[in-house]
Design a protein around this nucleic acid. Structure first.
Length: 271
DNA sequence: AACGAAACCTGCGCGC
DNA sequence: TGCGCGCAGGTTTCGT
């Protein structure tokens, strides 16, 4: 459930479901999910409550009632579910937070790519993994983006996927943003004009806002967590649309590989 | 320093 | 039906 809108939907849902519940225990049979020693994480968290949940780009941060926070990144397929304690454990549920009211918060991750980091409240924004994170589209100006792009020769798509440059965009929303901006994903970053940089930021804001409004995007075999069913897939203009016709000009949408990622483009609209 | 490829994992759909 | 390959909403690490 990866990009910014999907993570934001999860954040809101989780807040409704787990806030102020006391964590009585944490169990895990795949502790590689934690970048720190699992026993350390466990003794640091057990006994506290989740008093808030923040989000920075695609990162979730569980704000605990003690001096610690737990940062969670879902990567490709991480999901959260809230279930009763007695429900059977799914083979892909790798971390289970047991609350003292008999409920559990379960971290489900088919590909085991997701990661969690234990951090202290006083410096969690000043150290890995959050300190290098770029601004989200809503906080970024075209001027700022232009300055960063100006220094780079990488494909614009690769630059927009770089979370240090701009936070929150992933493969789907970069394709949609570039289509809306009428910019080809293989343009070199340093050829993007200030006007185009402004257009990119504006388009990204629009795409993300609409996606959030529709509860995110659910495509392929991906199912959403916490019963969240996104509808932005119905609004996609190019991503996953190979062979279909561009809604603006009727040209056939093509698929190419940019920076190792499947990339969809209207070669007529996007220059 | 910077870039591309490989790695991390599992499951699914496709062609033969 | 079975098998091998390629692909997947992401990030980090490795090698040139």
């Amino acid at each position: 459930m990866p990009e910014l809108p999907e993570v934001e939907v999860v954040r809101k849902q989780l807040k409704n479901l787990v806030l102020n519940k006391k964590i009585a225990n944490i169990t895990s049979e795949y502790t590689k999910i934690f970048n720190e020693d699992f026993n350390l994480v466990k003794e640091s968290i057990v006994g506290s409550k989740i008093i808030d949940i923040e989000r920075y780009g695609k990162y979730l941060v569980f704000i605990l009632s003690n001096e610690f926070n737990l940062i969670s990144h879902l990567r490709m397929e991480g999901k959260y579910f809230v279930k009763e304690q007695n429900e059977p454990i799914d083979k892909h549920e790798h971390v289970i937070f047991h609350f003292d009211n008999g409920e559990t918060l379960r971290y489900h991750d088919t590909r085991k790519f997701g990661r969690m980091d234990l951090r202290t409240k006083d410096d969690y924004l000043k150290v890995n993994p959050l300190f290098k994170l770029g601004k989200e589209p809503k906080d970024l100006t075209g001027e700022e983006l232009y300055e960063m792009l100006n220094k780079k020769t990488t494909f614009i798509k690769v630059a927009l996927l770089d979370q240090e440059i701009i936070a929150g965009l992933g493969n789907i929303y970069v394709d949609e943003t570039l289509f809306m901006s009428k910019i080809h994903p293989e343009r070199r970053s340093n050829t993007i004009s200030i006007d185009e940089a402004n257009l990119i930021v504006h388009s990204a804001q629009k795409v993300l806002a609409k996606a959030l409004e529709l509860g995110g995007t659910t495509i392929r075999s991906y199912t959403s967590s916490l019963g969240v069913t996104g509808r932005f897939q119905n609004e996609l203009q190019v991503h996953t649309k190979e062979g279909e016709l561009c809604t603006l000009c009727g040209t056939v949408i093509t698929k190419l590989k940019v920076g190792g990622r499947g990339t969809y483009v209207c070669s007529n609209c996007q220059k």
